[in-house]
């Protein structure tokens, strides 16, 4: 995995509904490498010719969008009210830094100082509706010089390498998936393969529905970052999956029961190639596979994920070791799925 490309991808703006910046970068990366088109919703669909034709239409997919905020109102005093795009835990928003609008205006999510809280206020989590973004504007007119109601705000969070090969950044979900797909697309592939970089996964898997209709694949491999809860005081199955334990191949999540044959194929392939893998010990989360599987007259789906802590916060954390194993597995799969009769 090329860390600098991941860094670049994560730093781009791509909150659901506004994925253009990410899309443009991906298109530029795929120039000369694959046939690329952009559909009505902004999904990027790429076709990479392989050495041979494929026995079946195979699609590898990742989503470009990230969770974020949208400005709902500018108060008379210049503070911004907002709502969340995608599922964000309100608690991580307190004191978070954001960038607002096309001009990426600095802002912070403020809350009354702790010293001024009443006893009851101290014991409860503030409601989303009581938080606001402060960009330092004097009043509404001042604020309107820089931003508008309806502008998007994204997390302002640095890409940091720390600990033993850990990486922290916003939007690793699912820029890692995008990176993995770009790297696959640049390789020499045995079989013709389709790649989809979808929009609006975080707000209901929306781009994927359209992609399924357009491409009509027979098999889809969804590449994602999936929630790892291997944290302090979490035991046993509640960890769901762990960092430093390899690629995650889930058999089921809240949206999908993965195709059993594909699951078996992927796990056996991983074992054969000595790729470290794990499965999820709790049924949690969901991704574009849920959309693909239930589209048209049904599509067979598989998911291969990198385990990621603190999803949907400004501080997603992954480990380089897991990235390597995930990418290795994806490469082995892409070289087989087009031609294997046993799939």
């Amino acid at each position: 995995m090329i860390k600098s490309v991941l860094h670049r991808l994560c730093s781009l703006s791509g909150v659901s509904g506004c994925e253009d910046e990410v899309g443009e970068y991906i298109v530029s990366e795929l120039k000369g490498v694959a046939e690329v088109k952009i559909d009505n919703l902004g999904n990027i669909i790429a076709f990479k010719k392989g050495k041979q034709r494929s026995l079946r239409k195979v699609l590898f997919s990742a989503h470009m969008d990230e969770v974020g905020l949208i400005i709902t109102k500018i108060n008379d005093d210049g503070y911004l009210r907002f709502s969340t795009i995608g599922g964000i835990d309100t608690r991580v928003l307190i004191s978070a830094r954001v960038k607002v609008g096309k001009n990426k205006v600095n802002g912070i999510i403020g809350i009354k100082a702790v010293h001024l809280l009443s006893k009851e206020e101290k014991t409860t989590v503030p409601k989303l509706s009581s938080l606001y973004i402060d960009i330092g504007a004097k009043n509404k007119d001042d604020a309107l010089k820089y931003i508008n109601e309806g502008d998007i705000a994204e997390f302002d969070s640095d890409f940091v390498e720390f600990g033993d090969n850990y990486i922290k950044s916003k939007a690793i979900d699912d820029r890692f998936g995008c990176l993995a797909l770009i790297e696959l697309c640049k390789k020499e592939l045995l079989y013709d393969t389709y790649f989809a970089f979808t929009v609006s996964e975080e707000i209901g898997l929306r781009g994927a529905f359209a992609c399924a209709y357009e491409i009509k694949p027979e098999i889809v491999v969804v590449v994602e970052a999936t929630t790892a809860v291997d944290l302090a005081d979490i035991k046993g199955e509640n960890k769901v999956c762990s960092l430093n334990c390899g690629a995650v191949i889930p058999f089921m999540d809240k949206q999908t029961i993965y195709d059993k044959k594909l699951f078996k194929f992927a796990t056996e392939l991983a074992n054969e190639k000595q790729i470290k893998w794990q499965t999820k010990t709790k049924i949690a989360g969901g991704n574009d596979a849920g959309a693909f599987q239930r589209s048209l007259a049904g599509i067979r789906v598989l998911s291969v994920c990198v385990p990621c802590r603190y999803l949907h916060t400004p501080s997603c954390v992954i480990n380089f070791y897991d990235c390597e194993h995930t990418e290795k597995l994806l490469f082995e799969l892409i070289q087989k799925l087009g031609g294997e009769s046993n799939v």
Binding site: D89, I94, S95, V114, V160, L231, Y310, L311
Partner: peptide
């Protein structure tokens, strides 16, 4: 202010400056 800690970056001033992220049980 404890409320402001979750998902934030901190430095532990140990033998050297050690980077960390404050974490807690996720919503689900």
């Amino acid at each position: 202010d404890i409320r402001s800690l979750l998902a934030k970056e901190v430095i532990i001033h140990g033998v050297q400056e050690v980077f960390g992220i404050v974490s807690s049980k996720p919503p689900h």
